[in-house]
Amino acid sequence: MKNTIIKTDFKFPGQKSVYHGKVREVYTLENDTLLMVATDRLSAFDVVMPKGIPYKGQILNQIATKMMRDTEDLVPNWLTATPDPNVAIGEACEPFKVEMVIRGYLSGHAAREYKTGKRALCGVAMPDGMKENDKFPAPIITPATKAEMGDHDEDISREEILKRGIVSEKDYLQLEDYTRKLFQRGSEIAANRGLILVDTKYEFGKTKNGKIVLIDEIHTPDSSRYFYAEGYEERQKNNEPQKQLSKEFVRQWLIQNGFQGLEGQKLPVMSDEYIETVSERYIELYENITGQKFEKADVSDIEKRILDNVSKYFASVKS
């Protein structure tokens, strides 16, 4: 698609390195500063789709920024500034090699595992007699090991994380505490918007002075699943699919077209018309999650816009 940003190759002042993630490009600058560009890439089943989704990067960046501001009283985060709709700047830190996934409902990956007969996920028991999209008695934390681009994240238990020394017990207990607090706040924010925060994942890092901070995105439709609260109970009672606000609709489209990221499966082609509907759906997600009207940024020359805005920001910091 035209007017999308798929990959960047900026040379920012003081730049030391760049890492290309599944969706974000992370530039390490001098003075322990990170600059993160949210691209319009779309990832599903840990596979990056070949075409970008218009405005997706802006949407993710702006939701994450708002949610970090709305939770910074609970959990410290890495964010310092967002000088451009697609750019976040903050403190560099060492990421933990686990993603903290928390689930309030039996949905998505957990539901798919449950249907195969499994009654435990990441060493955490799931009650018998549940059906898809039922609420768990209490939210469960089901961590995943972080994968490099193109590789699958893998479920892992708390016990295995500690046994393998991936995270120290002291730090892991802090990660769990932060995860539960963030999910509780996120659920409250969602409820105020007429939504249910079904499940989500958080990523954390440690600064040079040893402080654990929230990094990456938070409560976005890429990292979270939302249901509309209105009609939830009735749909469950009637065994009907829930009305969702997440990129699950993309996963379902891929599944219907014979793709789940498994070996030997061919990635289906997304037409420009379908991509346009995905973009419109992301805008709907933004407006429902934030309660604000989405304002489209100028996409006539996204790279130039980013460079100009970042340059102005650094000039203002120096002056």
Rank of each mutant, 00 (worst) to 15 (best):
D177T: 14
Y178K: 02
Y178P: 03
T179L: 11
R180I: 11
R180N: 12
R180M: 12
K181D: 12
K181V: 04
K181Y: 09
L182I: 04
F183E: 06
F183D: 02
F183M: 06
Q184S: 15
G186D: 03
G186F: 01
G186L: 04
S187I: 07
E188I: 07
E188L: 08
E188R: 08
E188A: 13
I189S: 04
I189M: 13
I189K: 10
A190L: 11
A190R: 05
A191Q: 14
A191T: 11
A191F: 10
N192T: 15
N192H: 14
N192P: 04
N192L: 14
R193V: 05
R193L: 05
R193Q: 14
G194D: 10
G194K: 08
G194R: 08
G194A: 09
L195S: 04
I196C: 06
I196S: 02
L197T: 02
L197H: 02
L197M: 08
V198E: 00
V198Y: 00
T200P: 09
T200F: 03
K201N: 08
K201V: 05
K201D: 01
Y202I: 07
E203V: 07
E203A: 06
E203N: 06
E203P: 06
E203L: 12
F204A: 03
F204T: 02
F204C: 08
K206N: 07
K206A: 05
K206E: 05
T207G: 13
K208N: 15
N209H: 15
N209T: 15
N209Y: 13
G210Y: 07
G210P: 12
K211H: 12
K211M: 14
K211C: 09
I212V: 15
I212G: 01
I212S: 01
I212L: 05
I212W: 03
V213H: 12
V213G: 10
V213Y: 13
V213C: 15
V213E: 13
V213F: 13
L214N: 07
L214Q: 05
I215K: 06
I215R: 09
I215M: 14
I215P: 11
I215E: 02
D216S: 09
D216H: 09
D216V: 08
D216F: 07
E217T: 04
E217M: 11
E217L: 02
I218L: 14
I218Q: 08
I218K: 06
H219F: 12
H219S: 11
H219M: 14
H219I: 10
H219V: 10
T220D: 01
T220E: 03
T220F: 03
T220L: 02
P221K: 05
P221I: 03
P221F: 01
P221N: 10
D222C: 06
D222Y: 01
S223D: 08
S223K: 07
S223E: 10
S223R: 11
S223L: 09
S224M: 01
S224W: 00
R225Q: 06
R225N: 02
Y226F: 15
Y226N: 04
Y226E: 00
F227C: 00
F227I: 00
F227A: 00
